[in-house]
Design a protein around this nucleic acid. Structure first.
Length: 825
RNA sequence: GCGAGCGUGGUGGAAUGGCAGACACACGAGACUUAAAAUCUCGAGGCCUUAUGGUCGUGGGGGUUCGAGUCCCCCCGCUCGCACCA
């Protein structure tokens, strides 16, 4: 073998990376007549070095970006750093350096890694959320939201992670533990800032129907998370008192079956209801115990239903019945009104509770299939049906009754139609250092005063010098002390920093003009580029990040910055990288370092493997031998092209009519491959099958050129050019190099995606399957344009079929045009 | 419990209701080589059969259809999400 047949990826990759960088190949503006395409991968946290999940994510994104460029689109493909967050603080503590220093070091290193992968980012647009030129605009947005009443402050019981020393949003609590450190979360009463995401609950829900380019699974998860319920809010008077308790129910049709009421232990009226009653001491014990149980049991599943009678009764406004009020451990204060009308016959929880405490069960809805026998009931009947024993509503079906009862309640002033959501407002206060400071000042005279625009950004102390104190801001006296912008007296700065999910909620809009110095978002650039046409990332962000980004988009639209309703038209949730049956992670000790692989095989091989081993949405099982295979394939292509360079010398056109059989076959296969690869990419980004298509073509080239079959040089040239063009988005350095070696003057990245020629791709002969009773009995070679009638004739006349048929007369013959004949006996 | 998804050779995976297992990995045999690596050629789902061929086969059971990996119903298993949401 000749020396120059060796695929020297190290030299090649370096060469092209340098050239692309020098020529600023991937720089784009929002000018020009080409249609735009915005492809975005979820930006990484600069944790130190990239992992295989990143490699996979960015390889997928890069193929799409390069493919769309070749299709003639003006492609925006940016990269940046989601740079605030706790790991920086932990690492800083451990190593005795500043979180900013650690973060910027990591960014520099990881940027180098991404460049070594040959990813086609417009690096001029790189942003890092921890830089003041990013977070100052976030602070400005915060102030605008504050001004618009979209932010408020309240005291709540928050989820506190003692290890991380911070509050967590509800979405960040997983099975009662912290999403980051896995430690149990505890409740704590604190004052904090909230975004009114619930203002947008209805729109966030309704617009899910616009997201046809999202996986159904993610849409469903979001819908469940928003959790809309419609029903009746109804006021129950407390007997012998002027108090009223409002309940919420989604089953107003069961209101005649109420036999007791249950309250959450945190319900504000609970103390008053039991005050002075003999039950008071017992109730107080129960409240304390339940609160403790709730904390401790957050990890485990459901607890037993428990409760205690308060000593008070309330009046069912529909029946006038006097029913006992219980405090119960299963009622949530955070949902509905914290008070539940209990209908044991038609609610399983109430049923269990009633059984345990000997409370009455009253059937009021009769399912249509079989009547309920109260004595025989072992569980509640939650189905709808026909109302019985329900006063004027008796005889209505559940659905009609719900509306009639709500109407009645509204007319008589005892209740009203009500909608409730599971979605809660977004708590954004964090007691951490490494985050964007919340730009307000607390003044004893003026209260909460926004930091004036011209004083932004409120800089994170010490972050600029990459040294100094980096304890949480409430421990930094120098930072806290300030004067009130309104009255001039001594005042204190807010010491909370923003949840890092705020940064990632609008970065995709900032990318459209990240250098803008006059505001957070360049409205013209954003109007041009947004929405993101293709967003790519892990499914673990299906709820948190994607919901927040959708909320921000709608809010920024209402504030006049954006013109779109939804940020991401199409979403691709890529699967995890698995090894030995588990997700790659440090704790499992099964990580594969991409650096070593790139060092050993080259970036193109690693990219090719990660695209070939599985379709993008599925989990990818890591396989070291698979990388070997990808490497082997590239070497093979390199060799084949090196050995056939002579075909590039002439630019003669293909004379179809004069081609020999092998040349015609290769010509045909080439165009079939273009068609197939294009379709694989267009329909669902199934690069694995696209690659296998190119492999088949390469296999055919090897088979036909290897045996001196005199392939027409023009055909061979077209085939090899096609191979390089089709593979270019996946293995760009490799293809660019061979493109140049084969004598092309214009670089491949400026070339257009090949068009396939329908005429060229058409087969002259096709194989037809002949079945008898659905079993394959013969195969026929027939002209591709055969008519059904002739096809059927040919099948019946086939020697083998004829002998199998003997003299039997077929009952029926099915002809699938150009595919199959099935003879039914 | 509710919701979503998945189940195909030794492995990753491929199949608009129409030849199951493309492509690749691993494996076996051969060629080249003093040898190895690399490369090239061939083989390969199970069972029966010398081959030809036959037969079974996409988690299990039923159904629709001329024809089912694919559509429908039931069951089993795995993965993910939510979970006392009134």
């Amino acid at each position: 073998m000749q020396n120059n047949d060796k695929y020297d990826f190290k030299t090649i990759e370096k060469k092209w990376q340098q050239r692309w960088e020098q020529e600023n190949t991937n720089k784009v503006t929002h000018q020009g007549g080409r249609p735009k395409y915005y492809v975005l991968e979820m930006f990484p946290y600069p944790s130190g070095r990239i992992h295989m999940g990143h490699v996979r994510n960015y390889s997928i994104g890069d193929v799409i970006a390069r493919y769309k460029r070749m299709q003639g689109f003006n492609v925006l493909h940016p990269m940046g750093w989601d740079a605030f967050g706790l790991p920086a603080e932990n690492a800083a503590m451990k190593r005795g350096i500043h979180p900013a220093a650690w973060t910027y070091e990591n960014i520099d290193y990881m940027r180098g890694q991404l460049k070594a992968m040959g990813l086609s980012y417009d690096w001029d647009r790189e942003l890092a959320t921890c830089r003041p030129d990013y977070y100052r605009w976030e602070q400005q947005l915060f102030l605008k939201m504050l001004d618009q009443g979209l932010i408020y402050r309240k005291e709540t019981t928050v989820n506190w992670c003692n290890d991380c020393q911070t509050v967590l949003a509800r979405e960040q609590v997983i099975d009662g533990t912290c999403w980051r450190c896995d430690q149990p979360v505890q409740p704590k009463i604190m004052n904090g800032w909230f975004f009114k995401i619930t203002n947008y609950a209805e729109e966030l829900l309704a617009d899910l129907s616009k997201l046809s380019g999202w996986p159904e699974k993610v849409v469903t998860m979001q819908r469940n998370w928003i959790g809309k319920s419609t029903g009746l809010a109804c006021d129950f008077k407390v007997a012998d008192s002027d108090q009223t308790i409002t309940i919420f129910t989604t089953r107003p049709d069961t209101v005649f079956g109420v036999t007791f009421m249950s309250l959450a232990v945190e319900h504000p009226l609970l103390k008053a209801l039991t005050a002075g009653k003999p039950q008071e001491p017992e109730v107080n014990v129960f409240i304390r115990q339940t609160i403790i149980d709730k904390q401790r049991a957050s990890l485990d599943q459901e607890q037993d239903k428990k409760g205690v009678f308060t000593g008070s009764y309330c009046i069912n406004p529909f029946t006038g019945d006097r029913v006992p009020i219980y405090a119960a451990n299963f009622v949530l204060m955070e949902y509905g009104t914290g008070a539940v009308m209990a209908v044991p016959a038609h609610d399983q929880r109430d049923f269990e509770f009633a059984q345990k405490y000997g409370l009455a069960v009253r059937v009021v809805v009769q399912p249509t299939d079989e009547p309920l026998d109260l004595a025989a009931m072992t569980e509640a009947s939650e189905e709808s049906g026909i109302l019985i024993a329900s006063g004027p509503f008796t005889g209505l079906d559940s659905q009609a009754a719900q509306q009639a009862i709500i109407d009645f309640a509204e007319k008589s002033g005892i209740g009203r139609a009500h909608i409730t959501y599971r979605l809660r407002d977004w708590g954004i206060s964090r007691q951490r250092y490494w985050g964007a400071p919340i730009p307000v000042i607390h003044c004893t005279t003026c209260g909460i005063v926004p930091v004036p625009q011209n004083e932004l950004p409120v800089l994170l102390p010490g972050a600029g010098e990459l040294k100094g104190n980096h304890s949480p801001l409430h421990q930094q006296e120098d930072f806290i002390a300030t004067t009130c912008p309104r009255c001039g007296k001594a005042a204190k700065r807010e010491t909370d920093t923003l949840d890092t999910f705020v940064e990632s909620s609008w970065y995709f809009a900032r990318y459209t003009n990240p250098g803008l110095t006059t505001g957070p978002i360049d409205q013209e650039a954003a109007a041009y580029w947004l929405p993101v046409d293709q967003y790519i990332g892990g499914v673990e962000h299906a709820i948190l990040h994607l919901l927040y980004a959708r909320f921000f988009t709608k809010m920024l639209r209402d504030l006049g910055y954006l013109t779109v309703d939804e940020p991401f038209t199409n979403l691709l949730t890529q699967g995890m990288v698995i090894k030995d049956g588990a997700k790659m992670s440090k704790s499992k000790g099964n990580v594969v370092d991409p650096n070593e692989l790139i060092e050993q095989y080259g970036a193109d091989t690693v990219r090719l493997f990660s695209l070939f081993a599985a379709p993008p949405e599925r989990d990818l099982e890591w396989n070291a031998q698979g990388v070997e295979g990808a490497s082997r394939f590239l070497n093979r292509v390199y060799r084949i092209i090196s050995q056939n360079l002579s075909c590039f010398k002439s630019s003669a056109a293909i004379e179809v009519t004069s081609l020999n059989e092998s040349s015609r076959q290769l010509y045909r296969k080439t165009h079939q491959t273009i068609s197939r690869v294009t379709e694989n990419i267009e329909t669902n980004f199934h690069f694995n099958t696209a690659i296998s298509g190119v492999m088949e073509l390469v296999n055919l080239v090897a088979a036909t050129t290897g045996e001196q079959k005199a392939i027409d040089p023009a055909v061979l040239r077209e085939t090899l050019e096609t191979v390089l063009t089709l593979l270019f988005p996946m293995v760009p350095h490799f293809c660019e190099e061979l493109w140049q070696v084969s004598g092309h003057r214009q670089p491949l990245h400026t070339a257009f995606w090949p068009q396939y020629n329908l005429e060229a791709a058409r087969e002259e002969e096709i194989t037809i399957v002949v079945q008898i009773n659905g079993k394959v009995r013969a195969k026929l070679q027939v002209p591709a344009d055969i008519e059904d009638q002739a096809l059927q004739q040919a099948a019946v006349n086939d020697e083998k079929i004829a002998s199998l048929l003997e003299n039997k007369v077929p009952r029926k013959i099915i002809v699938v045009p150009k595919k199959l004949v099935n003879i039914v006996l």
